[in-house]
């Protein structure tokens, strides 16, 4: 078990290191000059103040020292939690702006990931032994996995928000309210949260159901299932073993899917103007706020790594082979 976790932690450490390095390298490798683009955004006519702004931005990027020192400075600042100052939300720091948006994204992501995983696996396992359910679930499942996240979000906003008028289609809470811990406000939050959540939940559902169905069918045909059946074990018992074995790939799949789901959450938030990281990213792009953009990327990478590690822990708890240092749970 120790070896398994050491390998995993090493992998995540390297990933984090590479992500930070990519983050550092992108503005320096890309064609074009980010500083002059930021300047043109601010459209300063006066050449003197333009020069002052340029020096200011170049200092922010730290372009005035040699490259290796820029890299070291970047790491030092990062480890102190300093991601720079946001230009879009000036003078707030990038970390504080991201921290404000983070709860909204987590509130969308965590319930939708976990619920769709459980419901999808349940449906898939049922479909594996019910011909009728299989024939309806499979096409619908494939349809949902093929739907682009934002299109489903748009359709849901159109149906539930405009045509039926049941749900609001923008913002995280009604702007007439001030954020307080009252029932009205919490209900209002949930009211605004429901459609984006539903959209993320539905898209992910199909993939889990299909995956589980295929895995259970595969397990039911394997040797141990045949052996159990020939011993006269009740069908329920055989199915339970098949289901438990099929869970393992689904848990590692959860970690693998995470990057995709996070991407989906970003665009879904944009559709609903939901005040999470996705909308923040859009604002950062529109106002050419590269510090904010890179700060968000870093937060997403850290979040994905933490979640991956949690999935690993769950895997160890579920799969005894990893605990005993046997095969299984390859890095």
């Amino acid at each position: 078990m120790g070896r398994y976790f050491r390998r995993k932690l090493l992998l995540y450490g390297i990933t984090f290191f590479i992500a930070v390095t990519i983050n550092f390298a992108i503005p320096r490798l890309m064609p074009g000059d980010p500083v002059s683009r930021m300047l043109s955004r601010h459209s300063v006519a006066n050449p003197e103040s333009s020069q002052a702004l340029r020096t200011y931005f170049e200092n922010l990027f730290g372009f005035d020292v040699p490259l290796w020192q820029q890299y070291l400075n970047y790491w030092t600042a990062l480890l102190q939690g300093d991601l720079g100052v946001s230009i879009y939300a000036f003078p707030a720091s990038v970390s504080s702006v991201v921290m404000d948006a983070l709860p909204y994204t987590l509130a969308l992501l965590l319930p939708s990931i976990i619920l769709s995983w459980f419901v999808g696996n349940g449906l898939g396992a049922m479909a594996a032994r019910n011909k009728w359910l299989d024939n309806t679930l499979l096409p619908i499942g494939y349809l949902f996995t093929a739907v682009p996240y934002m299109w489903l979000a748009i359709l849901l906003a159109w149906l539930g928000g405009i045509i039926l008028g049941w749900f609001p289609v923008a913002a995280g809470y009604s702007l007439a309210l001030t954020p307080t811990l009252s029932w009205t406000f919490v209900l209002n939050l949930i009211h605004h949260w429901f459609l984006p959540f539903l959209s993320l939940f539905v898209v992910a559902l199909g993939g889990w159901a299909i995956g589980m169905r295929n895995l259970v069918i595969y397990e039911l045909e394997s040797d141990y299932s045949n052996y159990l059946r020939s011993l006269g074990a009740p069908q329920r018992l055989v199915r339970r073993y098949a289901f438990r074995n099929a869970m393992l790939p689904q848990i590692s799949g959860l970690a693998l899917q995470l990057g995709v789901v996070v991407g989906g959450a970003l665009v879904t938030e944009v559709v609903f103007a939901y005040p999470g990281l996705g909308s923040l990213m859009l604002n950062a792009i529109n106002s050419q706020d590269f510090f904010l953009l890179q700060g968000i990327l870093l937060f997403i990478v850290i979040g994905v790594l933490v979640f991956n590690f949690l999935a690993d822990v769950v895997y160890v708890l579920v799969d005894p082979r990893t605990r005993l240092g046997l095969e299984g749970g390859q890095s």
Partner: peptide, 18 residues
Amino acid sequence: NVVLVLPALAVLIVISSY
């Protein structure tokens, strides 16, 4: 494994925005 863990869309967004 490193590229697999990286959230691809977020990285693509940052690269494209530059």
